[in-house]
Design a protein around this nucleic acid. Sequence first.
DNA 1: AAGTGGTCTAGACCACTTG
DNA 2: AAGTGGTCTAGACCACTTG
Lengths: 246, 246
Amino acid sequence: MSDGRTTWRDIAADLRGAIERGEVRPGEQLPTQSQLIQRYGVASQTVANALSALRAEGLIRSRTGSGHFVRERPPILRSTRSRLSAAERAAGRGTFLSDAHAGDWTPRSETEIRVEPASARVADALGLDEGVEVLVRDRLMFADDVPVQLAISHLPRELTVGTRIEEPDPGPGGIYARLEDAGYAPLRFDEYVRAGTASAPEADRLGLPTGAPVLRITRIATTDERLVEVNFLVLDGERFELHYIV
Amino acid sequence: MSDGRTTWRDIAADLRGAIERGEVRPGEQLPTQSQLIQRYGVASQTVANALSALRAEGLIRSRTGSGHFVRERPPILRSTRSRLSAAERAAGRGTFLSDAHAGDWTPRSETEIRVEPASARVADALGLDEGVEVLVRDRLMFADDVPVQLAISHLPRELTVGTRIEEPDPGPGGIYARLEDAGYAPLRFDEYVRAGTASAPEADRLGLPTGAPVLRITRIATTDERLVEVNFLVLDGERFELHYIV
DNA sequence: AAGTGGTCTAGACCACTTG
DNA sequence: AAGTGGTCTAGACCACTTG
């Protein structure tokens, strides 16, 4: 029984249709598992598989003890990548605050600072030798208290020691403004964008189901002479839209 | 038992660790379900759940009758978005051919041309009235004969009538070169990037499993005066990496 | 207290692949 | 023919939410 059509796929398709036709509207509850077991005359596991698939597609949210609900599509967070501009820095906003300023949501972030030897991947990206000390700023960012973005930034330690970059709050304009103060103004940003699925720890931190679509961005900041930062970003793929002007 | 830790999650984490530590290498087979049932002393469904999660993460591929195998990560197709440049057009390459030139893969595409009344979405993007005639170029693009990109381009019909843009092969430099010939040289491209999961028809055309991560790009081309094209792109999220210089 | 989702058991059967 | 993955049955128990 491993051709395309299976019972749980049929049930999932049936429920998906009901949602798409608007018979169950966003925010409303689907029939309970018991009701679905009765309606389709199948075992509990079969219904569970169907609902699990709809959850993975992001069509429903399930709340233990409460029910399965059609997801309300949250507003999209637009993020224009021309934002990394001197104008925004001059206005005292870092990149994330700059996004928030363009949208109308309230930003917040939790930052953890640590010092690590550069991994092969980081050393390669920053043009350092493996094992050289780097400063890591591990940030989880919230929009209206919903976690939406994970950013793990790495900088050569020699550039950050004694600056506010090593503090959770680097001050107005963010770390790029502090780099500029130190004579390392980033002039160019290279962003490498991929789509992927959330790993278990990422899903946990971002409050997504495992396997939910995410945007993965590797951003490399460069002065006119050297690489100063590599930042690994993971964004909720369904809530974020990146805007690039080419 | 609905806190984070469950048996199937523990088993998935265990196998994920073995893969990440390289104990099971890409292409190699995981223990069979029977072996895992024995090893962990659990029911078949529990092991099935764990493997299902790893599959959703894209870590393994399962082949009925054969086994579960660690996925080989296919080579990444880099695509630099500064490619939409006059230089590339002058060299006689369209955007897709330009990507191919930068990578070392062989491009091919299947193009279907049709004329349609503008949908609300397209009309909105192009600043036209709904229902106005637009030319649609529906293309499926292949790299080394593997389908990797879907591009559905819409242009106001008045700009394309009588030009090679209405032919499957628009000639050297692609449609942007033809627009330039007609006095509508695109000067600015706005790209809006999201991550999502492949719908059933998209998965079918791109040869992906339904729900696989994809990159969705809406690209709007503008001359100094007007909007000339809106292009909806869907890319295999795991094979493509977009490169933007900001 | 009753209902709900999530997980688990211990089997069963089927389509498919491999030797 | 034997082994494999995928699905299914018919229950069970637990944590949680709701009235």
